[in-house]
Amino acid sequence: MNNRNTLFFWFKLILKRDLALSFKKIATFLIPLVFFLIVISLFPLALGTENSFLSSLSPGVIWVAALLASLLAVESIFNEDFRDGTLDHFLLSGEPIFILVFAKVFAHWLVTGAPLLLASIISTFFLFLPGGLVLPLLVSLLIGTLLLSLLGAFGSALTIGKTAILSAVIVLPLSIPILILGVAIITSAINNQDYLSYLYFLGAMLAVGIPGLCLATVEAISINYD
């Protein structure tokens, strides 16, 4: 207990707690994944099953499904802790809220974002995306879902105690650059063009987004506790 005062101790503690809570309930990590696959399979049902048509649509379809799946799951980041009072206790403890936000976002990404990466591999078979494109798809989704978790945490902190649809309306317009860049990475990989420049831009957004959006989330939480 000597290292109680280090920030990393709190980070590990919150992360462990959140992961333990999530894995106790199968719904928290399985439902977004299944939701993602359901949305993916709606597109062939609605648009027809011609292979080349579907594979040309697949980057956009996969990204839109990832966006929806990760944003629908953000409601759980702060709302449950807000309802049962855990959030109040943490704020009363006097520890920096930043570390709480940071750990919560990372836990949320581990529980919903990382399984999406696995599910996206399955979805490439559904949508006949050529096998060589799995790497750009995974890398773009890796950075993109991290960014979406950050944005989602900000939206859910702003709308603590409100419905998830409100935070989706606020956050979805802000996530458009992520969508455009993510799709641009995969489409330029399909056309054998250089996709690294888009990837660098997305990475730069993540580098700015981690401190920037975490700070904004901290501010959004403290608005609720004036």
């Binding site: 702003l158 606020i170 802000l174 458009i176 650059p177 455009i180 860049l181 959006l213 959004a220 608005i223």
Partner: peptide, 22 residues
């Protein structure tokens, strides 16, 4: 809350514009 979302939004709007410009 509205202030916060407009401040964050105005930082993201140029990025949206840039990405849409592509």
């Amino acid at each position: 809350a509205a202030s916060l979302i407009s401040v964050v939004g105005v930082i993201i709007v140029p990025i949206i514009k840039k990405s849409v410009d592509w």
